[in-house]
Amino acid sequence: MRIVMPFIIVVGLALTAWAGWAIHLQGFFGVLVPYAAALIFVAGFCKKVVDWAKSPVPFKIPTTAGQQKSLPWIKHSNIESPFTTGQVIIRMFFEVFFFRSLFRNLKGELRSGPSLIYGPTKWLWFSAILFHYGFLLVILHHLRLAIHPVPCCVDLIDKVDSMFQIGAPPIYLSGFILLLGVTALFLRRILIPQVRYISLVNDYFPLFLIMGIVISGMLMRYVIRTDIVGVKALIMGLVTFHPVVPDGIGAIFYIHLFLVCCLFAYFPFSKLMHMGGVFMSPTRNLPNNNRAERHVNPWDPKVKLHTYEEWVEDYRDKLEEAQIPID
């Protein structure tokens, strides 16, 4: 049920968009929904981050993954155990762009003996890289439909992305990379027993939603084509705040767009916020210079100590008897 239900929901969303198209609600699905989704995404994202930021980081708790900076002759691991802000930025760069922590992943296996064997396992890292970079490229090449004139950097990405011109239109590699990534992530979620056990509806829903987006997008590009010039006109209308709904854009586009809108609107309320959260994680974004630079806790708890004086009072006789000096 945890798997089937979100699948049905995504199919339902696609059907909703199709029905909307069929009863000529293009204005609703082409203009209102996208505006609402964009607003929910940006405002919701910011609200969530601000909400996080309202809670302080009371203690400096980096997870140190390498040798601390101590004696000058001991080699300091400056990325894994950063001492300065600059080093933290490098650490975060590797986390955000190369998924450093996932790359470290190991697989533990219990064999008879007993003997526990560990070995590197890069599949999760690789799938995640495929998925995220595929997604990034897909978003970047969509820019050609949302900005005009198309700047040369977007054009360049487009060219690399579409270097396989087996037919017309050229194949966008990124779409296939994304599809591969999302499929791999889905398969590992249902095939690895432990991962299936921990998975919630919240995990399957975005996967199905993204699959739906990729599949509808690919159908639109390679199979059920629609008038791309009309699509661009619609999108340009949205981004210039002069919305237009050109005639003759097929249902497939509205399905694609609606699923994208659902994803964006769902984003701030879901685990997808790891996109913002990865920057906010105190175990990664703080330097390991705890003993060198003082960190201040704004809500420093007041506690009642058992003071030296009280302690002396508790044990005065025994201290005197044992000739322990007393203040």
């Binding site: 040369c152 360049l156 060219k159 690399v160 270097m163 396989f164 011109q165």
Partner: peptide, 10 residues
């Protein structure tokens, strides 16, 4: 810059 699949493939 003209980036062609052939150059790229090369």
């Amino acid at each position: 810059m003209e980036l062609k699949r052939r150059n790229f493939l090369k």
